[in-house]
Amino acid sequence: MAVSTLERPLAARPSTWFVWAGMAAFAVFLLGILIAVVVDSFGRQWFDTWFPEGLTTDRYTEAWDRFALGEVVGVTVFVAVTVVVVSVLVGVPAAYVLARRDFPGKRAVMLLFLLPVLMPPITYGIPLATVMYSFGLGRTLTAVVLVNLVPSVPFVILTMTPFIEQINPAIESAARMCGARTRQVFTRVLAPLLVPGILAAAILVLVRTVGLFELTFLVSGPGSDTLVVAIYRGMTSAGGGEARQLISAMSVIYTATMLVMLVVALRFVNPTQLVAQVKETRDD
């Protein structure tokens, strides 16, 4: 890009150094937190020294047995995949209508989908959890999946609507002129064009669902806890919480899962493109 050479002198200003210093501090904190947890999870004993006295992987097997992590990871994956599939199936058609059609009450519908994203999860989470318990769904997998749909479906709709808007409607009109029905327009024309957007939205929903704490926590129980909730319960359980290193081991397992997903995600999409159609895409 020509701009970068043109702007280069700016990079040497004191203000720029200030920015770099701030970023360095952020990086130190971030890496410190990450490395501290990893070191702690492998440590034998770690109290008053720079590093633990010895290294071991026992914590992982211990944590795995103690918290039934096999089951917990299974639940997490099941919940995340179900939520992604359902919210894509429900959200994409709705996003299509909102992107292409103008109808009475459209603004109200938009607001309806925007509200769950803008509200604090606890605000609708507590009434929702109360409803779940009164329907006898408390602490079940169904309830966990259902509460996770509340922010996920609007999220898919809100990210997919601008994505669909940028697809030229003339393509669909041409397909219709050739006699394609709505279903065919969807499967043969739109779906292939939408795949990158759907993948991006799906991965973001996956990451969000795995990381979502508040809503899951309100309705889950033994047997339906996801990984984050299990870690939280481990940290706050009566009697001062479980041994710190067990929690660290669990956290490392959690982060590793997330990292794998994010690496996969970044191979497919650039996260900044979702918010606005960034100019770069046209240049590249």
Partner: peptide
């Protein structure tokens, strides 16, 4: 974003 609040909390407590 991948760390999540719970791991950040655990890390902060240690770090």
């Amino acid at each position: 974003i991948t760390l999540g609040t719970v791991l950040t909390a655990q890390g902060l407590l240690i770090f």
